[in-house]
Write a protein that binds this DNA or RNA. Sequence first.
DNA 1: CCTCTATAGATGTATATACATCCAACTCAG
DNA 2: CTGAGTTGGATGTATATACATCTATAGAGG
Lengths: 138, 138
Amino acid sequence: MCGSFRRTARALTSFYQEALWPLGLRATQLTILQALSRTGEVSQGRLGEILAMDSTSLTRTLAIMRRRGWIAVRRGEDQRERLLRLSRGGAAKLKRVTPVWDGVQARLRGKLGERGWKNLLRLTNQVTEWTTAQAGSL
Amino acid sequence: MCGSFRRTARALTSFYQEALWPLGLRATQLTILQALSRTGEVSQGRLGEILAMDSTSLTRTLAIMRRRGWIAVRRGEDQRERLLRLSRGGAAKLKRVTPVWDGVQARLRGKLGERGWKNLLRLTNQVTEWTTAQAGSL
DNA sequence: CCTCTATAGATGTATATACATCCAACTCAG
DNA sequence: CTGAGTTGGATGTATATACATCTATAGAGG
């Protein structure tokens, strides 16, 4: 199952990314833009939880995105925290990229059908939640 | 969907890998051992197709696994090809690791239930096949 | 046989991702 | 307030992964 998911993630990334390539944006980066757009300002640690990603791994990707002017960072009340939000440029980038992304997604969705699509989303999210909850419980 | 799959792949990898960590084996590497065990000797390019992975990306991982003595490589009749197979050590490693891996898998399978499990495998493979077939067709 | 083109991998470079470890800032017991 | 332990990220290091480009080998014509 793990191998199957990793394989599909690779195939799917390459499928979406083919359309995104000319826009100079990676799948991970778009995911982060989308997440920030939904949540508003969040700490790096919290963003890591949302994405089920090690928060220190985010440090590198966020550095890239900051260099490109897509996200803004400031210290929180707790001075250890980094609070992240979309910058104006990031919001613009997201707006420009979204239709392209949605177009690719629609093709896949059409292929899978509504039932399969929803099923798949539900099951993947269920797996994420459960495995995340199990972490460290051995 | 892409983000969802990538997120689940991370969560799932970390879930399986927690058990595998003491055995000094990564998820990708185990996947390769399993694939070679099923297929017998294959070329690097063919292995890439099977795993939906760029065959040149395999070069690096295979180098690591060769260093550890898990796989053996020889030239094919076509001198450009690299034919890969499990070495004796690789087969032994796979045998040792499999029960641990299966144990983790059984926990997840129990949680999802037979129906959800099969559904998920079927859907993910369907997505892999379709997106792979679409590659470059834009 | 010789050249042209196509293909299998190797290598360069960039991003993605994880764990271990480190530092700074926070918390809380005393 | 102060020292001990905790927590949020930053940094070091290793693997995973992709695309562009390069090299060597195949194969097709002439």
